[in-house]
Nucleic acid binder design. Structure first.
Length: 414
RNA sequence: CUGUUCGUAUGGCCAGCC
């Protein structure tokens, strides 16, 4: 049974869920009763992939076989709910856990805390922190790190600083994750000097930087179009004995593409391959975007085909990028064809997809076609692209009709 | 043997900066 658990866990880590299911079946057939840990592995794997319904099914299966869910089971499910923004569900699970006589531990609370943070529900965050204290589950370094990351994300640096003080006071870090979050906060607002100063602080405090630390900085410099600095940090990283990973390369690649340095981008790609860092869907999307923005839409389209050939499935972002590329190049029909293609490969379009196309049609003065898209997806993003399109071409009456329509469709203008 | 925190790609609008 141990062996199975290890195997299932391994399979779930590399998203090979089907094989994990097969193993579970095998266990049951061999009369080798799977325990909670085995089910938990599968549930956690599914939850991480956002397949919460499948995870719930495993829970059912578990109950049918009279295997009792534990705190870990619930925590994994909470994570799953949070990932799909189903916070009410997550809260319900927390209650259910308590009802069934289990006491949530700090990890369970942290999972919910993270969900609240991701949605920026700051009042609820502080409430939950209080609840933790009341329940005798003092927030730990994970809890504080979660909150710090959240505060940095929403630009509340003073508050993040306060948490930092509290952490020091409670001897709960700060650790490398705390620093990385703070650093990312500075990078996102282009305060690169402050971000770099944090790196010095870390080293001074004997808090060893990780690949994430360096990648955060490299990403910041790339975004700020400071490629020389990005390369400099990369050098420092090598000197510190840390190897770049796929994300690091993708950050740099994006910087190169956005700066129009396609030659260098291709060179970097070769380096990646040499270093056994196989390009992933993000790498390709970066390249597609780069090609599109430099007016090489047809090359981008070829790259998309190449992905399919190489078995690297383009995702929502790749397709959206491609559609925008065609629209901006004045080839809206080609863009629409990509929409059809994504449906063929069962990639579900989102609000970005539709608003991109609506914008494309409007800018091409093809209002009927734009309306047709709006008909498929009458959401806020689509409406605002449509309104923008109508207003910028002086069709104010039509715009007002749209506003009425929005109210009727239960999507009132804001 | 299993669960929690940090880094990468896409549209429009608005704000800010030059």
């Amino acid at each position: 049974a141990f062996t199975y658990c290890i195997l299932i866990h391994g399979l779930c880590q590399c998203q090979r869920i089907d094989e994990a299911y097969q193993l579970l079946d095998e266990m049951i057939q061999k009369d080798c009763h799977p325990d909670a840990a085995v089910y938990n592995c599968l549930i956690a794997g599914l939850c991480k992939m956002g397949k919460i319904d499948a995870a719930r099914n495993v829970l059912k299966m578990m109950l049918e076989r009279s295997c009792v869910p534990d705190v870990i089971t619930y925590t994994s499910l909470i994570v799953g709910c949070c990932q799909t923004n189903a916070l009410d569900e997550a809260r319900k699970l927390m209650e259910k856990m308590k009802e069934s006589g289990l006491t949530p531990d700090t990890v369970a609370y942290n999972a919910l805390l993270n969900g609240l943070c991701k949605q920026n529900r700051l009042e609820e965050v502080s409430k939950l922190l209080e609840e933790m204290v009341e329940a005798g589950r003092e927030p730990d370094t994970f809890s504080y790190n979660t909150v710090v990351a959240c505060l940095c994300e929403s630009g509340k640096y003073e508050e993040a600083g306060k948490i930092l003080e509290k952490m020091i006071e409670k001897k709960c870090g700060p650790d490398v994750v705390t620093y990385n979050s703070l650093m990312d906060g500075f990078c996102k607002v282009s305060k690169m000097d402050e971000a770099e100063r944090l790196l010095e602080d870390m080293v001074g405090r004997r808090c060893a930087p990780t690949v994430i630390t360096y990648t955060t900085l490299i990403g910041g410099f790339s975004r700020a179009d400071r490629l020389a600095d990005a390369y400099r940090v990369m050098e420092d990283m090598f000197k510190a004995g840390i190897s770049p990973d796929l994300v690091t390369y993708n950050c740099l690649l994006d910087g190169l593409c956005k700066a129009g340095k396609l030659e260098e981008a291709h060179e970097l790609l070769e380096v990646m391959v040499e270093k056994d860092c196989a390009p992933d869907v993000v790498t390709y999307s970066i390249l597609v975007n780069g090609l599109c923005k430099l007016g090489k839409v047809d090359d981008a389209r070829l790259l998309l085909d190449m992905m399919l050939e190489r078995g690297c499935q383009p995702n929502l972002v790749t397709f959206n990028t491609m559609i925008d590329g065609f629209c901006k190049a004045g080839k809206v029909d080609e863009g629409h064809k990509v929409l059809e293609l994504m449906k063929e490969v069962s990639c579900t379009p989102d609000v970005v997809t539709y608003s991109t196309l609506i914008d494309g049609y409007c800018k091409a003065n093809r209002m009927q076609d734009a309306f047709a898209i709006l008909g498929i997806s009458p959401d806020k993003a689509s409406y605002s692209s449509m309104l923008e399109g109508l207003c910028s071409t002086g069709k104010v009456e039509e715009a007002q009709e749209i506003m009425d329509l929005m109210t009727k469709q239960g999507c009132p203008p804001t």
